[in-house]
Design a protein around this nucleic acid. Structure first.
Lengths: 331, 331
DNA sequence: TTGAAAGCGCTAACAG
DNA sequence: CTGTTAGCGCTTTCAA
């Protein structure tokens, strides 16, 4: 491993000069700069980021903690984060908590110990403990879900969108929409449920819902239960695309035809949504932009002076209903 | 930030003792161990990973570089890597090169500068330059695609599988299968093409193929071109699921019915494959296991003594043809 | 403008 | 068994 000392020796200057030259300090004589650069180039010198970070007391790495790496919403979001991070010279440590509070805690600890420059997190629960990060002055931006801790957040208005989706189902002629959502302690799951509930109540329909884990099996299970009800639903509002996978699978298994026997709207766009027969009506969240905005917020926080007084920022992005076939009653 | 010195002061011992106690050196008196642990606990001490790594000259972080984070194959693989990494006490820096050699180079450089303990990479091309990592003695495991560099690799036998898939198409009664694959400089793309070609030739069918970028747009484009041929194909062997998304989209747009007008088999399982009508016949790769095996190989390499003589290992996992409806001629 | 030297927080010889 | 101390490789005062 070639270190700064080797470059200094080769260039015939001190290590301090090498450091300054390579970090673009304007105080170094131009000739020395080029001599140093040449030496560094020739020797194949790469600064040791560990040593630099230790000395500078700051790293160039972010942690991005998501709850489900298989959810296209999060991969799209990750791209948004990553693009902005790259532009700003950061690398992103992508961590998958799998909705598991223990894994999440572990990753938060890693972020702390590795002295992450910042953390972007989709918290597994509202009470996810980030107090240590805050104490360590590591900026945090929440995405998708709010948390009790006082941090910046970028999200969409799930409740409103859920309400609109349910109203759409009703307007399309479905009489008895049910809601399949995530665990009650997940904020987005609850918001979406509430939006559905409002719309149902407003239309004089008795709300019918299932809270299941955010996995496709959860969707499967919920459908099975719901269709076993005395007064089964004739349509579904599903709180995310992973859940919908299970829902659609179970519906198919039971030979229940979407768009004819039952209606369906799901939260989140997915690459396969337009390909199904019928094509799935979705609530599109600007996933990439959520990530990008969160990244911008983080950059701003990192750059902000120590005792900057500004309170937590909140950015709410719009969700769009994309009407396709699954929500329509077949002719 | 509470540091080791603070713990030492609080526990009334030297920093060395704190270090030893916390790192489970058996030479420390049990009473001191507990005193140190108590102090550390009380003060909320968290070792600075940067300082530790700098001193130990080794980190607990891996880089996992994939070419497309939106490809379910890679997210499943990432889970495999992550699970084993966690078990072995490592964190995974997941990087998305997007098939872009420049991004890939940047990430490799980050891995080097951050002194990654190891790197698992799906190289964007066979000639991806990992010489610096090798020089820095950072173990590397290739996944999915081989490379000219001498590294461990975990992969499937794409060629064989592709051949089987094409033979299956032919056996199902399709007369003129075409191949839609990735860029010619991508090894898996080429392997899959060759497998297809062998099967076609063996059956006396003139090979017909398109090499396009591994994005859904590539699939769209390929279909458009292929169907414009004088002697258009009656079925498709598609080299991965992302490409297939574009293929299916274009087929749908043109109102060409899969399973009736054309047959289709794609490489890789995808959560939506069984949900389409008709359900898609796929070549399933054990993505999770590929990741897990790669991780195990990496653990072994990291643990191996400096001058260990064993050459690069290669692990080839089986691919399974899952016959569903899209490859069958409708009655 | 440059160099010498201190020190980021930790671990690991080396002494005792 | 415990403490003292020398670094890991780098940046950044402080002097010259």
């Amino acid at each position: 491993m070639v270190k700064i000392r080797d470059v200094a020796l080769h260039a015939g200057v001190s290590v301090a000069t090498v450091s300054r030259a390579l970090n673009n300090y304007s105080t170094v004589a131009p000739e020395l700069v080029s001599r140093v650069r040449d030496s560094a180039e020739k020797l194949g010198y790469r600064p040791n980021a560990l040593a630099r970070s230790l000395r500078r007391q700051t790293t160039r790495v972010w942690s991005l903690i998501v709850t489900d790496i298989d959810n296209p919403f999060y991969t799209a979001l990750a791209r948004g984060v990553e693009d902005i991070a790259r532009d700003s010279g950061y690398s992103v440590l992508l961590c998958n908590s799998d909705e598991d509070a223990v894994r999440e805690r572990d990753y938060l600890q890693v972020a702390e110990q590795e002295q992450a420059a910042g953390v972007i997190i989709a918290p597994s629960g509202r009470d996810t403990d980030v107090s240590r990060l805050i104490a360590a002055r590591i900026p945090i931006v929440a995405i998708d879900r709010t948390m009790t801790a006082d941090v910046d957040i970028v999200r969409t208005n799930s409740g409103l969108a859920a309400r609109a989706a349910t109203e759409h189902l009703l307007a399309a002629g479905w009489r008895h929409p049910a809601c399949i959502t995530g665990p009650a302690d997940s904020e987005t799951a609850e918001d979406r449920y509430r939006g559905y509930r409002e719309a149902a109540l407003a239309a004089g329909v008795e709300p019918l819902a299932r809270h299941v884990p955010f996995h496709s099996d959860g969707g499967t299970e919920a459908v099975a239960e719901l269709l076993g009800e005395d007064d089964p639903p004739d349509s579904f509002f599903v709180a995310n695309s992973v859940l919908a996978l299970g829902v659609l699978d179970e519906l198919r298994r039971r030979k229940v035809a979407v768009g004819a026997d039952v209606g369906l709207v799901m939260f989140d766009e997915a690459p396969w949504a337009p390909l199904l027969s019928p094509a799935i009506t979705v609530l599109t969240q600007p996933a990439y932009d959520i990530g990008a905005e969160a990244a911008r917020l983080l950059v701003a926080r990192i750059g902000a002076p120590e005792g900057a007084p500004h309170g937590p920022k909140e950015i709410v992005l719009p969700t769009t209903l994309v009407v396709r076939e699954s929500s329509q009653r077949a002719v």
